[in-house]
Design a protein around this nucleic acid. Structure first.
Lengths: 214, 214
DNA sequence: GATAAATTTACCCGAACGGGTAAGTGACGA
DNA sequence: TCGTCACTTACCCGTTCGGGTAAATTTATC
């Protein structure tokens, strides 16, 4: 497949975001930078994968909230076929779980949409040269998540049911364990999360993004 | 104060959003429509008010999440000095409480940022002619909020404390009432919200946007 | 194989919660 | 003035929760 000629030193960028207006604006911002050029835009994950195959951009800027396939899934899909793909997550939210999953899925950077223009350009250039770059605020969040990561698998399951409003009895039957066991998990859970009761734990879980509302 | 001449039939628009990229993209989209033209952009509420005075746009497109003064406050500030100001809220979130407060504060329409271009243009034209226009999805949310509006003031206070993780005892002392009274409110609250316990109520409240996380 | 961690269950007990019922006050509109 | 509704308090009672303690089993790690 023929692709348009690439100028030397030019970094070719694909934007993935479901808001056309945002893509247009972002493209304008990026194109105003020397050496950076937007060469493709996708509005959803499927289109992103298709256009990646077609254009092989140097860097992908990806929103996480996409219709259909989510951003994380899109990143994984792309990196499955192209393990060298360099993806920067560019999203509105700075929730721990999102950040964690994005990095897990192979994103090289995680920026918020209100990141200043120059920082964004710097991040794109850095990622293009193979670096991984996380802004301080995001790194903190990731650290917070890691601190939370000492929740065991089972504890996470219990927490996520709890944060859906389930009672201990309901949780126990969902997980095929006794209520006593659920209570045992809750004890360690409350201690680890540093909360006093299930309601606080639920709020905590929601804020952390362990469970997604809606 | 001199203002640039206005072409006949041209609708002059001000954008208020803290993301420069979004503003730029939105401006490009809007300017591509005949008769619509972006004549000012603001990144926060204070700037919005200042530019409103200066340019008197026909229609304002306003995000709700702004640094410093929030979008709702910005709308109120503008409409205090210019009661005829026509503001369309253009935001990422479709949370009941946000919608409600925006409409309360005098917004004429409430659109999500992923609204198709033609619908957006139609909404701008409609609002400019004095109409109020709410997409079906948003109207539903507003209706849901109204359904919830049969929560009394006191019940709302109790719910919002509950959704912060407070115990009945804590709630009672915060509101200077007895624990029994709190429990009485909870009884009606659970019934109205159609939930079985405080954790579900808290989740509900958070989803509804009664309490904001963080 | 030993040690550590995760997972599971059990029992006791006090505190918190939630439902039912009843009733007094003040405000507001019919 | 009567009725309705929000708000308030109270008491009873059964259920759920959460903390303390203990221990068996499996899995992972060294």
């Amino acid at each position: 497949m023929k692709r348009p000629l690439k100028k030397l030193n030019e970094i070719r960028i694909m934007l993935v975001d479901d808001h056309p207006a945002f893509r247009k604006g972002m493209a304008a911002l990026i194109n105003s930078e020397p050496e950076l050029r937007v060469i493709a835009e996708a509005g959803d994950g499927g289109k992103a994968l298709e256009l990646y195959r077609q254009h092989r951009p140097d860097v992908v800027l990806m929103d996480l909230r996409l219709p259909g396939m989510g951003g994380v899934e899109a990143i994984m899909a792309i990196r499955k076929d192209f393990p060298d793909a360099r993806v920067i997550v560019l999203t509105t939210f700075d929730m721990d779980e999102d950040i964690f999953r994005a990095i897990q899925s192979g994103a090289k950077s995680y920026l918020l949409k209100d990141t200043p223009e120059d920082e964004l350009a710097a991040a794109i250039r850095a990622v293009h040269t193979g670096k991984e770059i996380l802004p301080g605020k995001v790194a903190e969040r990731l650290a917070a998540r890691r601190r939370r990561a000492d929740l065991s698998l089972r504890e996470t399951e219990v927490l996520s049911l709890l944060a859906k409003g389930r009672s201990n009895k309901e949780i126990s039957s969902s997980l095929f364990i006794t209520e006593d066991t659920v209570k045992a998990h809750l004890k360690t859970l409350f201690a680890k999360l540093n909360v006093k009761d299930r309601t606080e734990a639920a709020i905590n879980a929601i804020r952390q993004g362990i469970v997604h509302l809606e």
